[in-house]
Write a protein that binds this DNA or RNA. Sequence first.
DNA 1: TGCAGCTATCGAATCGTTTCGATGGTGCGA
DNA 2: TCGCACCATCGAAACGATTCGATAGCTGCA
Lengths: 336, 336
Amino acid sequence: MATIVDVARLAGVSTSTVSHVVNGTRPVGDETAQRVLAAIASTGYRQDSLARALRRARTDSVGIVVSNVAQPAFAEMVRGVEREAAEAGFTLLLANSGEDRARESKALAALTARRVDGLIIAPAAHSSWRELDKIRRAGTPVVLMDRTSRLSADMVGVENSPPMRDLVLHLIDHGHRRIALAAGDLAVSTIAERRQGYFDALNEAEIKVNSAYVLTGSGLSEDSRADVRALFDLRQPPTAIVATSTETAAGVLEAAADLGLTPPADFAFGTFDGFAHADLFRPRITTITQPAYDIGVTAMQLLLRRFGDASVTRSKTVRLKADIAYRDSCGCIGAS
Amino acid sequence: MATIVDVARLAGVSTSTVSHVVNGTRPVGDETAQRVLAAIASTGYRQDSLARALRRARTDSVGIVVSNVAQPAFAEMVRGVEREAAEAGFTLLLANSGEDRARESKALAALTARRVDGLIIAPAAHSSWRELDKIRRAGTPVVLMDRTSRLSADMVGVENSPPMRDLVLHLIDHGHRRIALAAGDLAVSTIAERRQGYFDALNEAEIKVNSAYVLTGSGLSEDSRADVRALFDLRQPPTAIVATSTETAAGVLEAAADLGLTPPADFAFGTFDGFAHADLFRPRITTITQPAYDIGVTAMQLLLRRFGDASVTRSKTVRLKADIAYRDSCGCIGAS
DNA sequence: TGCAGCTATCGAATCGTTTCGATGGTGCGA
DNA sequence: TCGCACCATCGAAACGATTCGATAGCTGCA
């Protein structure tokens, strides 16, 4: 690869002049600039961002850490971040934590060693808040995406409690009193918030929380599917179930299918963050949908805001609205 | 941030000694090494991969370009690549092409400027083969993932024609003669290959291809949904439809739903690369599923192989097997 | 005692840029 | 004609590491 030195030699100027031509950092004489441009064209010179970054102490790159890109919601967020980043001339460094603290830690180390200008992270279940704080205090802006943390930093996510509360209230309005919650890992902030919405609704309706109705665990393992099946063996089985995520929703539906049960006939059902193309299939699942792409876009914008103006000091939290689409599975379409 | 110089000064040694301690590049006296280690601990020194990469002329990073991470198949591939990369100590730089040549080109420029050690790409529909070849000839190993190209390089993907042929033959076996194909953009190699499988099956069964039955276009736009609806207005509408991708499948099902038609009652249906959690919903769609995660893993392994042994010269193509899951939508469960 | 052969460490060049103070030449006003 | 300002360009020092030839000190053998 041709370097700036080759170009300078060929054009008969110094490297600094070439640099100024390339970056427009200082005015350069017309005729000289032409010679430089010609030299660049004929050598096929391309700036080396590594050397550039080393010298300028900024890399024009941002890191993103999510638990798993393959989960549709995260995939959409990543797409949003990537789009916004690319538009602003930033490159995206992606790492998965696999919801594992050690892997997350490694990922953070790798990204900071690469000196990313900013970091977007959906902290893993048992993420180390202190580690992030160290990074932030060392001068790298951090944005929490989708999930919160004890860390005080910019944050963007969706409203979790209110729509969950609305969904459960909706079920209560339609006569359900025994409502179960397939929660998942409460160490994940979104899950905890969604459970809170469930509690809020029950409290408002003065229904006592039945702890046997609140299931934790991912919904993916055989264990938690057994938990769901056990629900139906209770003397007073729930008449409705809500799930906090696509994964737990799938767990519930699978476990129910094992027993030959389907919503809405056998139980009412609704979930936070459902399945793609849900309208094409039966039953249509009542779903709280989050604007995942926008979450990603906003996360990147929060970073760009810091880049643009280092004096921004107070951290900003953005909560986007989640929509509820009432469909067949909660058994109340046409019934109201 | 502390630099190697700080550490050296504190430990009372030269920077080269510190470097050798850190990297284990040369033996260092026991007592000296201890001092260096202590200095590293007390300064909180961390290697700067930027400077390191500049000097060593390798970045321990790889770039990946797909059309859209949010598509489930690509998301899984990216996950596979990331996993394998992280395990081998590589960082992943991600870019989306949006199936657009210009954006792809920009992405490639950004990645090569960052001197990635290798490049994994699913070339966009009208990707410039020459551009990739230039990169490859400049010394950066390139792996084609999921899609082929005129470029001669390592490649990993799934078998496209054979399973599509099998699927269509299956429909023919069950009495269908009027079979339509929702193809999509033929400039995408996978789509073209899948269409070929469709042709192969028809030829084998000596059924003449009816060009009115072969639809191109993404399936997402209103136009192509109109195309699908038009199919059913033909004097001789197809009795079966196969789709080449999740997107076109969704397009077909939506358009059919507009007319109140559903498989398998109104037409037999099957698709390459379907919907997640397909077994939970009705109708269950007959689907050719690809091992997307493994494709990603393999792609990264092909790169690692080149890194490990620069003498590898012949390019390798890996075609993984795709499975066909026959389900309700093709209307032959129990019927055979 | 002198020298070969180690081992442990140092020093300096290098990777490819950016950046900023210095320099040389030109034009203009006094 | 002198001096000043100004413009275009140059030169050299960073950025933070790696790498390799050189050197110093030591052991052991002749």
